[in-house]
Design a protein around this nucleic acid. Structure first.
Lengths: 342, 342
DNA sequence: CTGAAAGCGCTTACAG
DNA sequence: CTGAAAGCGCTTACAG
């Protein structure tokens, strides 16, 4: 057991002052080559590494980024973390991850905890409950304290900060329109409750696509799902009652469940019913039939978010810069759950 | 913009000493009720929260756990992080996540970085490259410095520390034996190269199961896959050449790929060929047919690892305690890719 | 009951 | 060229 060595101990061993040791290790020109080399050799021998906590305190920056997301067991979020991590690492930052579990309180607690010195800035995606309550004081407060924040995916207009999103409404619009262009008329929508921002936007896109193509909106074809765990009964009702020729689902889980239900009802996918999902994750790839879906590049979103945050952190406090909202491109990934789309 | 307030500022405003402020906020009996209340009211008003970095430096503990895993975009690892996070949070710990990307160098760099004061202890799973090189000096060094380490899943006997694993060999044995008990004779194995510890163990289990049931080992039925991205060509060769009645795959990806390939070759699953996978993740659930698999409860493994680490951290330095290896239960989850197994 | 001092591990402006 | 001092934000043993 050999504990980590400190400047103080090196100083003592070498019978010089702590300042001299510190300067030597930082290659200060103030120090004579002799003592510099001597100190460096000794430090190397004892494998000296500066204590990062002490440096953080001194420098008032920690070189770590705080991430707060609703959950991690979710391919998209895991993907974003991965994207953040890589850019962070390249720039000498570490990443500390907190999960809100879709809970407002946990989101607040985690933010406050991290805001007390542990990190230099936040990257976050709102919990469902926070979106439902529309209470963002914890985020605004952190920003007011001068800590930069980048929001991604589940964002809100009520907070002014940098953001990374996709154009959920447009992507949904295009997906639904491509169904229409291929002759589909009775297009079901499986979506979330409205307070989930991205669900709402995708719903909007669906509605716009129908409207601008002269198809009347039929509320019965729209299934809003609150409780994801029991979505299959609701989806079964939708498929049974409504004689759909296709379905647009706002996430992978809804899409794959729709396929499972369709099979159960002896409907062939895509012949009897075509399915388009959202978020190009592991499920869409490995389901059979594999799922045609709107790609949502989490790695890119994470890269972008991290880069924006780091730019803020390292831009010598030019406070007045405008906030940026970066929109990541999406596209439709064609697979087996739809006929070849024109 | 109102920056966070410090003890110093409060002291100045109230015209008392920093010590008095500190003690008041910690409810020290040394302080008169009058000043205590005054200070507390003021602190509350200004929303004072102690700087955690300063506390870390002072207390020589950070209340954060470092996690190093090969990758995060992998359901099992995401699941483990989730398990760690929850126990950590309940105990007032935060979690800092680093990815080794299966690279030895990144694993070393990340460990050294975190070991320099940022965390109180590690939870880690070895990168492939580290397993291949069998070089664990970075881990041993950290342990020698007195920092507790818990390894999970991809562990090694060359490092003495607490560990959380499943009995990979036994689980594989049981899975393969259940195939045998249901009349399967030509059982293929899709596995990793041997240096991946868990792959090797699962291979061992397969071999033992055949041997102890009087089935000769046929090397041609064993496919060791190095490059996961192109596994489907190799798997196709296996299925084509070997007339298998069943396959045991050491992970989800191999299992689902085997199913895809089987379909392509017009083999029905499970009628013509039964498939058992390993790791009960999202793919196994949503593939069709859904995949019979060995469950590997990542949440539980994470919980356990976090609990063991925290116990170490909070056990008043009773150094001499023995290291523990905790074995998490597994079981076979029956789904559609096998006939009902007796 | 209050405060000055020392200390956690480091850096750096300043004196000598 | 070297070192003492101040400081990052905090706590706590000790004096008064």
């Amino acid at each position: 057991m050999k504990k980590k060595v400190t400047l103080k101990q090196i100083a003592k061993e070498l019978d010089v002052s702590i300042s001299t040791v510190s300067k030597s290790l930082r290659d200060s020109p103030e120090i004579s080559e002799d003592t510099r080399l001597k100190v460096q050799a000794f430090a190397k021998l004892y494998n000296y590494k500066p204590n990062l906590i002490a440096l953080s305190l001194k420098n008032k920056k920690t070189k770590t980024i705080g991430i707060i997301i609703p959950e991690i067991v979710h391919h998209f979020f895991a993907t974003v973390i991965s994207g953040i991590e890589h850019i962070a690492n390249e720039n000498g930052y570490n990443v500390i991850v907190c999960l809100s579990d879709e809970s407002f309180d946990k989101e607040v607690i985690n933010m406050e905890m991290l805001a007390n010195g542990s990190i230099d800035g936040f990257i976050l995606s709102l919990s469902k409950e926070t979106q439902q309550k529309r209470d963002f004081h914890h985020i605004i407060e952190v920003i007011n304290q001068g800590m930069p924040v980048v929001m991604f995916d589940r964002v809100t207009n009520d907070v002014l900060c940098d953001k990374v999103i996709i154009d959920d409404s447009l992507a949904a619009y295009q997906a639904v329109e491509s169904l229409i262009n291929n002759g589909m008329k009775r297009i079901g929508l499986i979506t979330t409750v409205d307070y989930v921002s991205v669900g709402k936007l995708r719903t909007d896109g669906y509605i716009k696509a129908l409207s601008s193509n002269g198809i009347a909106i039929d509320e019965k074809l729209i299934m809003k799902i609150e409780d994801i765990d029991n979505c299959s009964t609701q989806i079964e009702r939708l498929l049974k009652d409504c004689k759909l020729d296709s379905v647009f689902a706002v996430n992978e889980l809804f899409a794959v469940t729709a396929i499972k239900v369709a099979k159960k009802l002896k409907l062939r996918v895509p012949e009897d019913i075509a399915v388009i999902g959202f978020t190009d994750g592991i499920i869409s790839t490995y389901s059979s039939p594999s799922i045609t879906t709107v790609s949502q590049n989490g790695i890119k979103m994470g890269n972008q978010a991290a880069q924006m945050l780091i730019n803020r952190l390292e831009s010598e406090d030019e406070e007045n810069e405008q906030y940026i909202t970066e929109v990541i491109e999406t596209h439709l990934v064609q697979r087996e759950s739809t006929p070849p789309l024109k």
